[in-house]
């Protein structure tokens, strides 16, 4: 179920990228797309009834049912990269606004 939601989110993001002309809205669409992928990654590691994959004094055996920790590590990296890209995109948006006085890609003059 959650995987359908994540694919829907990815499609919403792609739809936004294809239809929007505003630079900020494009960045928001990109973020929605990334969130969709991140949710999908997490869903891959989910085990029904599994617990957090941390060895503690109570959960001190590998015989217990844990969720897969690897996708969680991957999604953390993916989120960090996403934040970096978003920050850079916003910096570009600001410089473009300084250059052209608008956030609309169609209204930007020149080549």
């Amino acid at each position: 179920m959650i995987q359908y939601v994540s694919i829907a989110l990815m499609l919403v993001g792609i739809y936004g990228l294809l239809t929007q002309k505003n630079v900020i809205k494009l960045i928001v669409s990109l973020n929605i797309f990334e969130v969709g992928i991140n949710v999908f990654i997490i869903s891959v590691g989910y085990v029904s009834g599994g617990i957090a994959p941390i060895l503690t004094s109570q959960n001190n055996t590998s015989a217990l049912l844990y969720v897969d920790p690897l996708p969680q590590a991957l999604v953390l990296t993916s989120i960090v990269i996403g934040v970096g890209v978003t920050a850079l995109a916003l910096a570009f948006a600001r410089r473009m606004h300084k250059q052209y006085g608008t956030y609309n890609l169609d209204e930007m003059e020149g080549e």
Binding site: V85, M96, Q99
Partner: peptide
């Protein structure tokens, strides 16, 4: 060329 770089970024 921020516009082109932004295009590349997206």
């Amino acid at each position: 060329g921020f516009k082109h770089s932004f295009n590349y970024l997206v």
